[in-house]
Design a protein around this nucleic acid. Structure first.
Lengths: 159, 159
DNA sequence: CACAAACGTTAGTACGACAAACGTTTTGAG
DNA sequence: CTCAAAACGTTTGTCGTACTAACGTTTGTG
């Protein structure tokens, strides 16, 4: 009775928002699997990468730069610290702060993660030709730019 | 010290997977806000739409068709039933089953949700010209097709 | 000095997705 | 016909990303 009735596609399957959510889901699964393969997750990569680019920083500064919510920093840094990939030391010049810095182990892990990342991006874009990949990247970048810049827009139309 | 140091973009900001996740995030926020404006969320819309397309069904069939995990159906249907948008009645011909069906109120709600959805899609794609929107939809559809069809691929390369 | 701000931390919420376990009911194979 | 397998609905809990609220500590400033 319900066996073969599922062939016609639901109406929402062609909505841009649905396509984005679904492809993003696949992307995140791919990348997440890659990270998990070396015992990490997204936050860890973002933190390690941010540290590598900007150098040691307080948790608050790190959160701002990596776009990770302050409330989530504690756990993420704890996890990295447990793995010996970052080091948390009190800032002698400001006792509110912990200065977080990359260890050699962290740098090694970052290299692994970047390698994984590259593989997974390839996998993600596999069905697209080089030109199409650039098209996609361009279109998505424009969408992202637009919505990052105009977070609220049209809250109080004109008044 | 940390004031103006955040201008250079993190390396991962141009990764396809990141672009997808972020744009999908914006999309989901937009659509989610639209749904919330009429007291619903994504699951509710998907269930109502599925019911409208395929007619009454058991929870299990509904879950398969809407792609919602069985474990999440109970709560979602409870919520819809509380709002009087669906009706849950035991199937007389199979006492394991609850037959879920749309009420007039549910149909009304679905129309509201669809209107919201259309508005939000527009908002989402605002920065793109019509031709570009089709390009994006085409590219995303191909990615989605590929990854839906090849869930695992390359698990045991060739033994 | 007093107060506001920044910092780190804890706890809780939301949403989409999934896994494991359980009792009930139906069905199919011996 | 019986008994085991399968389907169904349900509960409980987990994960990852993201966000809010509150709190104590430390700092810097009016």
């Amino acid at each position: 009775m319900d066996d073969r009735a599922d062939e016609n596609p639901p109406s929402w399957r062609s909505l841009p928002s649905w396509l984005l959510s679904q492809t993003a889901g696949h992307a995140q699964r791919l990348v997440g699997d890659g990270f998990a393969a070396v015992g990490a997750r997204g936050y860890h990569y973002r933190l390690l990468a941010t540290l590598a680019e900007h150098g040691p920083a307080s948790q608050a500064a790190l959160g701002r730069r990596s776009g990770i919510h302050l409330s989530d920093m504690v756990a993420a840094i704890n996890e990295l610290a447990e793995r010996g990939q970052v080091q948390r030391a009190p800032d002698p010049s400001d006792r509110r702060r912990n200065i977080v810095s990359l260890t050699a182990e962290g740098r090694r892990q970052l290299r692994l993660l970047e390698k994984e990342l590259a593989v997974r991006q390839e996998e993600l874009l596999a069905p697209l030709a080089p030109g199409e990949r650039e098209q996609l990247i361009g279109l998505l970048s424009r969408l992202l730019d637009h919505h990052d810049r105009q977070p609220g827009a049209a809250e109080e139309p004109w008044r």
